[in-house]
Simulated assay, not measured.
Amino acid sequence: MSKGKAFIVSNLDTFFLANRKEQAQVMREKGYEVHVLAADTGRSGDITKMGFVYHELPMARYSLNPFLSLKSIRDIRRIYQKESPVVIHHLGLKVIMLGTLAAMKTGAAVFNTYTGLGYLFTIDTPKTKFFRSVLFMFSKWLYSRKRVVAIFQNMTDFNLFKKHNTIDDTNGFVIRGCGVNTEEYRYAPMPDQQPLKIILPGKMLSSKGIYDFVEVAKAIKNDKTISQEVEFMLCGGIEEGHPFSAKKEEIEHWHNQGWVNWAGFQKDMLAMYTNADIVMLPSWREGMPKGLLEAGSVGRPIITYDVAGCSEAVEDGVSGYVVPFGDVKLLTERTRQLIVDRDLRVKMGENSRQYVLRHFETYKIIEENLALYNKFL
């Protein structure tokens, strides 16, 4: 029996495919007609081949132009009014803000997953502080409405919104990311290789910690007490137009100096994790970093900062190390400990796998989302 139409709304088609396709498949099995609303980067055909209905998302990703935003709200509303969904699930801050306004008076239950709070909450400037205050005021009004639900991927973000009285325990919930397909990302034995490989999975943004990663690489390569040859690899593409994007010339300079190699965007990250010995993400802030969970599922020790999202992806001292934000010296020391002790890498990698199985298996996460739908339908 059909449960009606359900929309999953994402900024990009690639984000949906990487993070929500399994959920969409389960929703279809449960009786929903699944529609995907996302910007087309060339992968929308993959969505339709899976049997989902695809709609182009009319939204300028980085623009703060209010007139463009109003046009986006109007265009999204037309799609919602035409299709009459019973469930609308928005992913990401800007999609949430525009999509929820567009969804008003549709009669749908609206679920908003904050996949990360972005640069507004990463740096403190008069501009970001102003927009944060606007966001909290807007959110308080937004979540005063019936059947509009906030979903956070970590406790830090949940507590932040709760502190500002934008949500409470009746309309705000924590679902820790979108999970990992642990059958696809199977445990792989630790490599026994030279050079030892340390990778950073993420876009080439300063907010992903790439500059600290390079500083660690320089320090390790200059440490004469380390006998192993070590390769540091950046795995991610450049995001043009992003305020924190690194320049290609910078990355090429790091490579030419012999500090790091750059693999660029990798479609097959499973192969990258399998061939790595250590995975590091000294990010400034995340929702729930799927790259770290995938690495953990494969059985790799993780090093990250004690920031929103990242700290919940690791058991400090058990499956890896959580380092105080910005402490590059300790970040380097933790990296050194894992480089020189293969047994420690193996043990922490095994613990990573078990931690992911307990808390982040994708179908457990999907069931949490579906249970929340049922609660408000």
Rank of each mutant, 00 (worst) to 15 (best):
D316W: 00
Y305F: 15
G309D: 03
W284R: 11
V298P: 09
G291P: 15
A313G: 13
C310P: 07
E315M: 14
R300F: 05
P289E: 03
C310D: 14
R285C: 08
P301F: 03
E294V: 15
M288V: 11
E294F: 13
G299K: 02
A308D: 04
S311P: 01
P289A: 05
V298E: 04
Y305G: 07
K290H: 11
G287A: 14
K290I: 13
G291K: 13
L292A: 06
P301Y: 01
K290Q: 15
G291T: 10
T304H: 02
V314Y: 00
A313V: 12
V314G: 01
G309L: 02
S311I: 09
G291H: 14
E315H: 12
E294D: 12
D306S: 12
L292R: 02
L292N: 01
V307L: 09
E312Q: 08
E312H: 00
A308W: 00
E294I: 12
E286D: 14
G296L: 03
M288K: 15
E286A: 11
E315C: 14
P289C: 09
Y305P: 11
G309V: 03
S311L: 09
G296H: 05
I302E: 03
Y305K: 10
V298T: 06
D316V: 07
L293Y: 07
G309F: 02
W284I: 06
L292D: 02
S311A: 15
S311T: 13
T304F: 05
A295C: 12
A313W: 07
P301A: 02
W284S: 12
I302G: 00
E312F: 01
K290C: 13
P289M: 06
V307I: 10
C310S: 15
G291Q: 14
S311E: 14
L292E: 05
G299A: 10
P289Q: 06
G296S: 08
G287E: 13
V307Q: 09
S311F: 07
G317W: 05
D306P: 05
A295T: 13
D316G: 11
V314L: 02
G317T: 06
A308I: 06
K290D: 09
R285F: 07
G317F: 08
G296T: 06
G299N: 10
A313Q: 06
V307S: 05
K290L: 14
T304Q: 11
A295I: 13
I302Q: 02
M288G: 10
A313D: 12
S297F: 07
S311K: 12
G291M: 07
L292Y: 00
A313Y: 04
G299T: 05
M288C: 15
D316I: 04
C310H: 10
G291Y: 10
G296K: 02
E315Q: 15
E286R: 01
G296D: 01
E286H: 05
A313R: 08
D316H: 15
V307C: 12
P289G: 09
S297Q: 08
S311C: 11
T304G: 15
S311M: 13
S297I: 07
W284K: 09
E312M: 02
I303N: 08
K290Y: 11
V298S: 10
A308Y: 03
D316K: 01
S311W: 04
A313T: 14
G296N: 10
M288S: 15
